[in-house]
């Protein structure tokens, strides 16, 4: 039997918006773990809200779909990475999370998409402000390149620097 091998069966690789495959230096702390000597750490959302006030240094935070990312506002100066989780790729809450971080809260650290991250979502993720992707694909860099070149035209403003079509039509923000 000649069974197909879906792209999503490849091990996830971390790739940046520029198409560079990078190692993942961050470690997700499960709730009972203490912060040891080896960093850097990604804290669960609840734990981040509880502990970040007393912590110094720079942390990552994992945001799941139901979490209200605006609660992180007081701690953003201590956060350098936010992992937005996509437990299933049809769950689109993470797109709002990223745009709120970028456009409303002014967060400038890294936003990383993790979970069920596939080639076909990369373009809209980039538009919403993601800059790192733990993507399941046999050619992660190629997937980024394809997504970056996919659309020459964007109809609406979002978190990236692409100008909406109406701005191009009327010479706004050139």
């Amino acid at each position: 039997m000649n069974l197909p091998k879906p792209n999503s069966s490849y091990e996830p690789a971390l790739v940046t918006r520029a198409g560079e495959v990078i190692p993942n230096a961050w470690q997700l702390l499960v709730d009972e773990d203490t912060t040891g000597a080896e960093g850097p750490y990604v804290l669960g959302f609840e734990r981040a809200l509880r502990d970040l006030d007393g912590l110094n240094g720079h942390y990552g935070v994992r945001v799941n779909p139901g979490d209200d990312v605006r609660l992180l506002e007081p701690f953003l100066d201590r956060i350098t990475l936010i992992e937005v989780a996509f437990p299933g790729y049809r769950d689109g809450r993470g797109y709002s999370t990223a745009r709120i971080l970028r456009e409303d809260l002014g967060y400038i650290g890294a936003i990383r998409a993790v979970g069920d991250v596939l080639r076909d979502q990369l373009f809209i993720m980039m538009r919403c402000g993601f800059d790192e992707f733990l993507v399941k694909d046999k050619d992660p860099a190629g997937a980024i390149a394809a997504a970056s070149q996919r659309f020459s035209t964007t109809y609406q403003g979002a978190a990236d620097s692409a100008r909406p079509v109406w701005a191009l039509r009327h010479g706004i923000g050139a």
Partner: peptide, 14 residues
Amino acid sequence: RQWSSNHPEFSFLP
């Protein structure tokens, strides 16, 4: 129509 076309935030609504 134009605003909603390929809207990056609203392509995977509930």
